[in-house]
Write a protein that binds this DNA or RNA. Structure first.
Lengths: 185, 185
DNA sequence: TAGATTGTCTAGCGGTGCTAAGATCCGGTC
DNA sequence: GACCGGATCTTAGCACCGCTAGACAATCTA
């Protein structure tokens, strides 16, 4: 019995090593630098080992994305409990800024994660639920739509800022504006 | 003299053929399908011919993006003149929905187009200026910040909708909400 | 018509994701 | 302790990618 579980434990550790390394590589040099050869070399295994743990390269970034959803949901919850709408917005934008590669895997890169579906992972619904909770007081009759609009605004700010398409000096002012127009709606 | 200009004309037509074909291929199958080999075969030349017109593959999608900025700026202007804030928002989202690959080239794919810089192409400033013009009445003291927020919201709605991450049925409601909260700010 | 210029192609480099086939290790059984 | 069988890992290779050097053909200039 211990032999079997020891193998399984080793396998699980290898899987986490691959995931952690892929994430670090992506954050350091972008997802285009995460190739099977470079990743295999970084974890000191040959390429086929990766395929023993993940179906393909996309499955690796999807797994990183799922980690990201866990972290983001926790951050949003904390931000919301601390400072409501503004706290959640700050937490969202901070997460996107601090983990741009993970954010990309979650929301920008092509993925087979389905969003509005029955097969949607629970954590995705949880994340959406955090935004829903903080927005509902401002649109009790149709909170879903305002949630989508608010989320889209945050997503737009996050991606355009990460792509250096917004003035880097006006982070706080944009957040103030967004929080103001949502709460006056 | 006509010989020289005939050559130049042929060269220009070839360039446009490459651009048009790349754009069609991208809209039909996504940018990942636009490879030098497939594109060369589609225009019935060998791959090195592409490099006689464009420095590399990225330069092709950048050229497509510049076409897109021209079209988008014209659409935004028409929408704005027809129905102000709402008309512009509708025009923006319609363009992104009708030309998802071009929109990607403009705002999502990595590009060497700089945005807030002195070397920014005039057409980019023109496009931004359309949004600025329609938003200024609602924030006369600091129109730039509200412009960035409004643009980010439109961009977020466009990309999340194109990635099937928003309910496809509530297009109009989201637009109504966004226009409402901006104009009440 | 001879030479220079321009245009085009074939072939090839090093990289990519991914996989088949064989070697090797290691736990379970006699 | 010897051996078997399955899990694990590596080498080697496929077809594709962006991109370029060098040979060859077509066209313009003089």
């Amino acid at each position: 019995m211990p032999s079997q579980t020891r193998r399984e434990r080793a396998r699980e550790e290898r899987r986490e090593l691959i995931l952690r390394t892929a994430r670090e590589l992506a954050e350091a040099e972008g997802w285009e630098a995460v190739t099977t050869r470079r990743l295999a070399e970084a974890v000191d295994y040959s390429q086929p080992v990766l395929y023993g743990h993940f179906k393909n390269m996309d499955a690796i970034s999807t797994a990183v994305a799922l980690e990201g959803f866990e972290e983001l949901a926790a951050g949003l919850r904390a931000g919301r409990e601390h400072d409501g709408l503004r706290g959640l917005a700050e937490a969202y934008l901070r997460y996107a800024e601090d983990h741009p590669a993970v954010y990309d895997a979650m929301f920008v890169r092509r993925t087979d994660l389905v969003f509005g579906d029955a097969g949607t992972p629970e954590i995705l619904r949880t994340t959406f639920g955090e935004i829903l909770a903080v927005v509902t007081p401002f649109a009790p009759d149709d909170p879903e739509t305002l949630t989508e609009v608010f989320w889209s605004s945050l997503h737009g700010l996050a991606t355009l800022a990460n792509g250096s398409r917004l003035r880097p000096t006006h982070h706080q002012q944009r957040l103030d504006h967004l929080v103001a127009i949502i709460s006056h709606s």
